[in-house]
Amino acid sequence: MNEKLLITIWRDQVAPRFDLTSEVLVATVDSTGEVLHSKTVVLPNVSAEDLCHMILTEGITTLICGGIEEEYFQYLTWKKVKVIDSVIGPYDQALEFARGDRLEPGAILK
């Protein structure tokens, strides 16, 4: 079954703050870990609420981000979105690790 990942990004890094993210990478990955489709989206407004709304309407299954407040973490988890937070490092590496199902919360990808 395909997975839809969303990574919050800032420059070439995973964005340090979920609530201040203005750009995201959305990638569809198949069961073998191959990226079928990916796109970066620049968000018109910077807001954790808008981002949560987008995650749910886009049908995202996994969120990869930096710091996220407990409130939004719990909400997304409740909505069955897997949240891998406190990820540090370049977002392409984060995607690489996520494809292989090797990305853990708090991962530091130096």
Partner: peptide, 10 residues
């Protein structure tokens, strides 16, 4: 910015 994660960082 990855560790302190201040709202001013970016």
């Amino acid at each position: 910015y990855h560790i302190i994660r201040n709202n001013l960082c970016t």
